[in-house]
């Protein structure tokens, strides 16, 4: 069995110690190759795929998931999970709409939305970080609570009444690219930087490897986890803003299933579901990969039941062959050693 060199490496900035060197980029490369292949296939089977209109509008379909997936990458690297992000999106959506309508000020609505997102994140963070409730259970519970609140305050009705200009985020463009793509790119750069270049990034990886030893190494695990969930709440709020802007209305059913899609992108991107290692670039490639598969299959007239099955199969195959590449390669090594 492999000894875990991770923690010492993390604390001494020796990044190579985090993972066995032979798998450092294996998963990302595999995904990138897959992305290229799928891209070519989709271009071949559907003449509408490789058009500026399709490629730009396609992005709008999954940026909201992407924003959440960035934060989810952090959470999963820290060895936790957040099943409540979809419900946070719902609660933030209706909060924005109701405050906007009550005050007549979109700014107040957006501020309220961000505040609600952070509050939800804080609840999760306190439960997981301080009350030590297992993340799966804690966020499963808050998933119901946040969704119930959203349904309750909105009476399950659709709420409209946003000013015209608000749609710029959801359906506008900057330099020919959808506004939300720019938002996503900026966030992606920040997340990547934080994960790779800051103490916080090293801390969440250390906690993901082994929370006990992280704690005894002097890391304030509770506080890091709280921050982790606050970030998830914030990104959920941002996703909600993009979504609400795109559809010019809010409803408590928004965000349903977003959690699983975000988790899918993260895991497909090579982040270990057990925590400890993972990358933002993997998540991004996985996000775009699933995006073009869904879009391309729709254009190729593959019924959506079939494309969901294909996505599920892809996730499984990717994890079997590569998500666990670390342990898998070790098994291979051990076998070779015995021979």
């Amino acid at each position: 069995m492999q000894n875990k060199p991770g923690l010492a490496g993390l604390l001494t900035r020796d990044k190579t110690a985090i993972r066995p060197p032979e798998v450092k980029y294996a998963h990302e490369l595999l995904l990138l190759g897959l992305f290229a292949v799928v891209f070519v296939i989709m271009s071949l089977i559907s003449p509408k795929f490789l058009t500026v209109l399709n490629l730009t509008s396609m992005v709008r379909n999954f940026i909201e998931y992407g924003l959440i997936a960035l934060a989810m990458t952090f959470i999963i690297i820290s060895g936790n999970i957040d099943l409540s992000v979809g419900s946070i999106v719902a609660l933030v959506s209706v909060s924005i709409a109701m405050v906007n309508n009550a005050t007549g000020s979109l700014g107040a609505g957006l501020a309220a939305g961000v505040a609600v997102g952070l509050a939800c994140g804080a609840v999760n963070g306190l439960l997981v970080g301080y009350a030590r409730v297992p993340a799966f259970v804690a966020t499963l519970a808050t998933q119901f609570i946040f969704h119930g609140l959203a349904l309750g305050i909105s009476h399950a009705e659709s709420i409209t009444g946003f000013p015209q200009g608000f749609s710029f985020i959801g359906i506008g463009k900057i330099l020919g690219l959808p506004t939300q793509l720019w938002i996503f790119l900026v966030c992606a750069v920040i997340f990547s930087f934080v994960l790779n270049k800051t103490k916080f990034g090293r801390y969440i990886r250390a906690i993901g490897f082994n929370p006990e030893s992280a704690y005894y190494s002097g890391i304030n695990v509770s506080r890091v986890l709280l921050a982790d969930y606050l970030v998830a709440g914030l990104m959920s709020a941002l996703a909600a803003i993009v979504l609400v802007s795109r559809v010019a209305s809010a409803r408590a059913t928004f965000g349903t299933g977003m959690d699983t899609i975000a988790i899918t992108a993260v895991v497909l991107g090579g982040t270990s579901i057990a925590g400890g290692y993972g990358s933002i670039r993997g998540t991004i490639v996985a996000l775009f990969l699933t995006g073009i598969i869904k879009n391309g299959l729709t254009l190729a007239r593959v019924p959506s039941e079939v494309s969901t099955v294909i996505l599920g199969a892809l996730l499984l195959v990717s994890i079997i062959f590569s998500g666990n590449a670390k342990s898998w390669l070790n098994i291979v090594k051990v076998r070779k050693g015995k021979q």
Partner: peptide, 20 residues
Amino acid sequence: AIFTVFMMVLSLCACGSSAP
């Protein structure tokens, strides 16, 4: 592994695009 994934996606795309 990489090859298998490619083949799988290829075959799925192929049958998916013609059947419906």
